[in-house]
Every structure is written in structure tokens, then in C-alpha cells.
Design a protein around this nucleic acid. Structure first.
Length: 666
RNA sequence: GCCGGCGUAGCUCAGUGGUAGAGCAGCUGAUUCGUAAUCAGCAGGUCAGGAGUUCAACCCUCCUCGCCGGCUCCA
């Protein structure tokens, strides 16, 4: 009998009867893994387990709980869902159904809207199919034949995809450039069939539906075909799948946890902020407690910036249209600006950015090279017209305050300035409890240089400067083409919160365009006039968004230095109030934000109130404490500490009052 | 902006083609209390706004506004 030799990941050579599939190989060498392996790889290329390996192939198995295996699992579940949808709604037309970060979706064109109540119906049908242990059968055919097949079935979206494949060799013509080398060849495409459902798909898939043990459909949303507003809106059904029920449960619990931390809910419950319909969407009211947190953030921010050579300024919120014309905002940014107002025959516009004002401060004097770098900072409130559908609590608003600064510098100072900003940004994030970050270098799209202001050569220079800083920093970063601002390339800084979610906050943007537009100059050592470079930067991004992120990160339980109320003092009975006042006075003098709760309620009730409002320290004072100048201390989260002298408590709290800022000693 | 869903008291939510209810929060009173909810009473709503159908609309229809989930966009 003929044999073939294949190479296992260990490097071992395995002799295999010719014509046996990977599934059979698995049974021979790893019977214990059966049911946990969803696919294989031949020479690194993912394939179905039903594939018969050729002689000499490097063979690997893909486990269900590996990231790749999970993707395959979810992809197959998307197919299962589509099969169920097709049975329930025979008129449905299918677009695409890929696995994503937390699960999968399928975009489907349905003749009528899908009510949310239908999700359990679809899910039930999926379970029925799952129980039938339907195999995922791979069918290969030439593109032309596939086109005819999809046309007869009325699958117009699949036809469109196939036409793209026929023309470009890939289903995504927008990526044709980067895929040039690896585009499918041979004019063959593959389908996967489970019962009557046949779907164009590269694969691989799990062998049969019995592998799909734990899944759930989560929600429905609209999505444009190919993501473009010009195209029809499809119904997108989201779901998720995991190797085990337990893992699925855990995921659903995490979703629940995210809901529990929702800053919109906590913001209302904790009296931090509100957004009122009468004022308008995306416009935030900071209530006293939220404002207190903001004050602490701002004070810390100002101190750090002064310490690092920034000069802080205040500038107006509106300016004559002419200014925005000179700055280029009217040509590049008008879609995002509130419409103007007329005053004394002059058009004024509300500012969407702070830069022109800082530029005019720079330009108000003749500047010498000795003045550079010239760093102007401002917690500057701006207004941007955001389309109504994108607004979201504090995370996406129309009026917000940027922790903005503009650095005017000589070209040779650029790199060290950018490096300093990056260092400051990361240090501040750490102080707020975000040790993890993610950096993205956004550069121009060489194919569409008309989108950008300035010369190609300037762009080149700025982009390589940013790249060098990032490389020297030693931090990992992604490089994305086409994401630059209209005036220059940038580094975007995202933080990672306690649930592992990434939020973009900081940004460092190089600008050689504005200095030119405003004809900025400085007198160099040579006595001649030179053009400075400009760096726009924000570290927290906007105070609104950052506050929203903070609320969710901490679930409303802010660390001591940020908490709006740091200590609640509860006198047991009315006669203890003078002593409560005395303790409060001492804490207050030390700079602690303290509140006495002398309401006519039992101690248990008031402790509960302090706990649910996330006050970090609770101090109960009764006869015993009055007697010995003591405080009965309780920390947020059920820890009862017992009594201690007020002096001891004060010492402890004093250490907690300041942000944990670590950085270069200046 | 687009697709879908939603909008009843400050909050969470019941409710029916025949002029609206609970819990919590609020207020008042009693209670003076020792580590996560003391008891009683009171008050609170143009049922998002507008138009229409109807003898009668919170309920049915249309429009507007807002919110939610996504898409597109983004700090």
C-alpha cells in the first residue's frame, strides 16, 4: 500500500497511508484531541480536516480554543446561522458573514425588518440543525460556474463578490494592492454546503455542526453593504460562539459587567453629569460631583504641564470666519463645524479646534530661536458638529474640552519634542490607572495626496520623524496609511481599560501647514527669518471622553485622589455631631474632601448609602470614638478596619491625596 | 445622516380604545439608633412634542424631537 510522509510541528516525520485525511491522521496520533481540533494547516495554510495532505507537507492541527480555532468556530457558527435564516426566510439574500473580535455577524438582505423577537426563533432553528450533525461540505468550482450558480439563486451580493474575484483575484478590490502576491489563483472558488444552504466561502470550517456547542445570537443592527453609505442597508445579525458553555457564560457575564459599568448609568446614579434634551444632544452638564473630579484632573494636568515648560493660556470660543479661512478649516473641516452667526455684519464661527488662537498668540510678538520650543497649553472647549447617530454619552459629544497644546519649534527640535510629549502622555495615563497603551502611527495615503495640505516632501520628513521617535521609544506601534489629519501625520495613543477595551485619547500631530498659512516665523541665530514647525497634541483627548472612560474603568469607584467625596463621616446619634464636625474640620484642613452624613437614618442605612455612592472611606463616630479621639474606619468594599486615632487616619489619607505620578524628576 | 428598536413620576418599570399604577428616590412626622435599606403619612405624570382617525387616544395612523444597538465618521 502506498504511503506519504508528512512533517509534524515537532519536526517528526509521520508515515501515513496515502489518501487519508487530516481527520484520520488526527485519530491516529492524537485521538485524545478529537472534537477539540477544528481544522488543520498544511505548510501554514489553514485547511479543513477533511483535506488529504500531500507527501512532504508540514502538518499542523488547529485547536478550538486557539485564537485561530475560535475564529473558525465562529465563522462556522455564522454559516449555521445563515442556514437557519435561509430556512426561515427563503427570500433572504446573503452578503458576508465573518468572525469578528467578540463573535461573528452575518449581513443579510431581508425583504422586511427583522424584529428582535425573531432571534430566539433563529437560534432554535440553529440548535435543530446543530443537533443533526450536518457536515460542512467543501465544493470547489470555477468562478464562471459559481457566477452562474449564484445568479440562478438570486444571490446578488455573492454575484458581486464573485465578479470582484474574477476581476481582481480577491473579494476585496480595495485591498488588491496589498494582496497582489497572494490573491487566489487558478480561477477556482470554494463553497461550503450544509443541507440546502450553500455559501461562497474560502473556509476552512469545522467538520460538522456538532462542533458548534455553545453559541448565542446577541443583537440586530443595520449595516451598509460593503460599508458604504451609497449602498443598501442590510440587516446585520450579531452572535457569538465559544468552545464550551462555560466560556460562553463567562463572556455573557463580561457583557453584563460592561453594562453595569456603563458611564451613562453611573453618571446619573452618582450625580456626575447629565445630558439634557432641552439643551441639545452631545452637550454635557457637569454636576457638582463630576465637576469636582474634573477639577482634580485639571489641577493635576496644569501642574504637570507647567512643570514641563508649558505656558497655559485662555482663548475665545468664537472667531471671525476669516480666521477659519486662513487656518484652512473652512476648506478642510467645515462639515464638522457648527454653522456661523452674524454679528455687526461679520460672520463668526464657533471653534472646532484651538490651534488658530494659539498661533495668533505666537505671532503676536517677534519670536527668536531662543524662544523655541514655545509650548502653549489650554484646556480648550471646542464644538464640533457630529452626526446625530454617532453621539454616545460622554464618549462622543458635540461640545468638549481638549487638553490641548501647541508646540512651536525648530525642525531640529521636533524629534525631542515629540519624544517628550509621548513620555508625558504615557506617564499621565499611568497616573490615572492605565498602565497599558496602544500606539498608532497614522500617515498619509500615497495614492491620494490631494487629500492633504502641504508638499509630499514635507510629509515625508514629518512621517519619518514620528517613526524614529516611536522606534527609539521601544514601544510597539501600528502604522496605518491614509489616517493622517489633513495638515500632517500623527501618533494616536489609545489606553486599555480594565475590561481590556481600547480607547483612543491622546494624539500627537505634526503640522507644517498652519505655520505657513499664518506665515509664522522666528529669527534664527543667523539673524534671518525662519519658519517654525508646529506640533498639535492632546494627552487625555477630551475631558468628557476621558471622564467617561474613567467612570467605566473604575465602575464609578474612583481612586482616593480622584473621588469627589473621599470620606463620609457618620455620627451614630445626634449627640455625636459636634465630634463629627471636629473630625471633618481636621480632615478638611488636610485637604481631604469630606462629607458628614447626619441624616436621621440608622448607621446601617448611611453606610449603605456611602457604599453605593462609592465613597472610599467611611468613618463612624459614636460614644467610643468621642471618648478617645478615635475614628472607626471602613474602606469601600466591605472592609471594616476597626478604630484608630484620628491622627493615624490623617497620616494615611495624606499619602493618598496625590496622583501616583512617576516620571523623570525635573 | 442611514437601518432597526424604544420614549408612562427624578430613577427602574407595570398598564388598558372609556379620563394612570408599583418600588426606590423626594417631602413631613415619629424613632436617637454602632457597621450594606426603621416605621408611618404626603406629594409627584399635558403618558416626549405636534397633527389626524374616533363619541372617546397613553393605546391606532402620520410627522417632529430625543434615546438605545449598529453602519459611516471620530477626541
Amino acid at each position: 500500500m502506498a504511503h506519504v510522509d508528512v512533517i509534524l510541528p515537532s519536526g517528526e516525520i509521520q508515515r501515513l497511508e496515502a489518501g487519508l485525511s487530516l481527520a484520520e491522521l488526527l485519530r491516529q496520533i492524537h485521538a485524545d484531541l478529537e472534537g477539540r481540533v477544528v481544522a488543520g494547516r498544511l505548510d501554514g495554510k489553514p485547511v479543513d480536516l477533511s483535506t488529504v495532505p500531500p507527501a512532504g507537507a508540514r502538518v499542523e492541527l488547529v485547536l478550538m480554543d486557539s485564537p485561530e480555532g475560535l475564529f473558525i468556530l465562529r465563522h462556522s457558527t455564522a454559516h449555521l446561522m445563515a442556514a437557519a435564516v435561509q430556512e426561515l426566510y427563503p427570500e433572504a439574500k446573503f452578503a458576508i458573514g465573518p468572525p469578528v473580535e467578540d463573535g461573528f455577524y452575518y449581513d443579510i438582505d431581508l425583504p422586511r425588518p427583522l424584529p428582535a423577537e425573531d432571534l430566539p426563533v433563529i437560534e432554535a432553528r440553529m440548535r435543530a440543525l446543530q443537533a443533526d450533525r450536518l457536515p460542512f461540505v467543501r465544493v470547489e468550482m470555477p468562478v464562471e460556474e459559481a457566477l452562474r450558480l449564484m445568479e440562478t439563486r438570486g444571490e446578488t451580493y455573492k454575484v458581486e463578490i464573485l465578479e470582484a474575484i474574477r476581476r481582481y483575484g480577491t473579494s476585496r478590490p480595495d485591498t488588491v494592492e496589498e494582496l497582489k502576491g497572494e490573491a487566489e489563483t487558478g480561477g477556482m472558488v470554494s463553497f461550503y454546503q450544509s443541507r440546502s444552504f450553500l455559501d461562497l466561502c474560502r473556509g476552512p470550517h469545522v467538520p460538522d455542526t456538532s462542533f458548534l456547542r455553545a453559541f448565542k445570537l446577541t443583537h440586530i443592527a443595520g449595516a451598509y453593504w460593503r460599508g458604504s453609505e451609497q449602498n443598501p442597508m442590510l440587516t446585520r445579525i450579531y452572535g457569538t460562539a465559544f468552545p464550551t458553555e462555560e466560556a460562553l457564560e463567562q463572556h455573557l457575564y463580561r457583557l453584563e459587567e460592561a453594562r453595569r459599568r456603563d458611564h451613562r448609568r453611573l453618571g446619573r446614579e452618582l450625580g456626575l453629569f447629565s445630558i439634557e434634551e432641552e439643551i441639545g444632544p452631545g452637550l454635557v452638564l457637569w454636576h457638582p460631583k463630576g465637576a469636582l473630579v474634573r477639577e482634580v484632573i485639571e489641577a493635576f494636568w496644569r501642574k504637570e504641564h507647567r512643570r514641563r515648560g508649558y505656558q497655559l493660556v485662555y482663548t475665545p470660543h468664537v472667531a471671525r470666519a476669516h480666521l477659519w479661512d486662513v487656518s484652512g478649516h473652512l476648506s478642510w473641516y467645515q462639515d464638522n463645524m457648527f454653522s456661523g452667526m452674524e454679528v455687526e455684519g461679520q460672520e463668526y464661527l464657533v471653534r472646532p479646534m484651538n490651534c488658530p488662537f494659539h498661533i495668533l498668540i505666537y505671532r503676536s510678538h517677534t519670536r527668536s530661536y531662543r524662544d523655541l520650543p514655545f509650548r502653549l497649553g489650554e484646556l480648550g472647549t471646542v464644538y464640533r458638529y457630529e452626526r446625530s447617530g454617532v453621539l454616545h454619552g460622554l464618549l462622543r459629544v458635540r461640545g468638549f474640552t481638549q487638553d490641548d497644546a501647541h508646540i512651536f519649534c525648530r525642525p531640529e527640535q521636533l524629534e525631542s519634542e515629540v519624544a517628550d510629549v509621548l513620555e508625558l502622555a504615557l506617564a499621565m495615563l499611568r497616573a490615572f490607572g492605565f498602565p497599558e497603551h496602544h500606539l498608532v502611527l497614522s500617515v498619509s495615503d500615497p495614492a491620494q495626496m490631494t487629500k492633504y495640505a502641504g508638499s509630499e516632501e514635507e510629509w515625508q520628513r514629518a512621517e519619518s520623524a514620528l517613526e524614529r521617535v516611536l522606534e527609539k521609544s521601544g514601544f510597539a506601534f501600528d502604522r496605518v496609511e491614509g489616517e493622517a489629519a489633513f495638515y500632517g501625520p500623527k501618533i494616536d495613543i489609545s489606553l486599555v481599560d480594565v475590561l481590556g477595551r481600547q480607547w483612543q485619547c491622546g494624539t500627537i500631530q505634526i503640522d507644517f501647514n498652519m505655520p505657513e498659512r499664518f506665515d509664522l516665523s522666528y529669527i534664527g541665530e543667523d539673524g534671518r527669518s525662519h519658519r517654525p514647525l508646529m506640533v498639535h497634541r492632546a494627552l487625555l483627548g477630551s475631558l468628557e471622553r476621558f471622564f467617561g472612560i474613567l467612570i467605566e474603568h473604575y465602575g464609578g469607584a474612583f481612586p482616593f485622589w480622584l473621588a469627589p467625596v473621599q470620606v463620609a463621616i457618620l455620627p451614630v446619634a445626634e449627640r455625636h455631631e459636634p465630634y463629627a464636625q471636629h473630625v471633618a474640620g481636621r480632615l478638611d484642613t488636610a485637604g481631604v474632601r469630606v462629607q458628614i452624613d447626619d441624616r436621621n437614618e440608622k448607621v446601617g442605612y448611611r453606610i449603605r448609602q456611602a457604599e453605593v455612592t462609592k465613597v472610599p472611606y467611611i468613618v463612624v463616630v459614636g460614644d467610643r470614638e468621642v471618648e478617645g479621639s478615635l475614628a472607626s474606619v471602613r474602606e469601600r468594599g466591605r472592609r471594616e478596619r476597626g478604630t484608630m486615632p484620628v491622627d493615624t487616619l490623617l497620616d494615611e489619607l495624606r499619602d493618598l491625596l496625590h496622583p501616583p505620578m512617576t516620571g523623570p524628576a525635573l
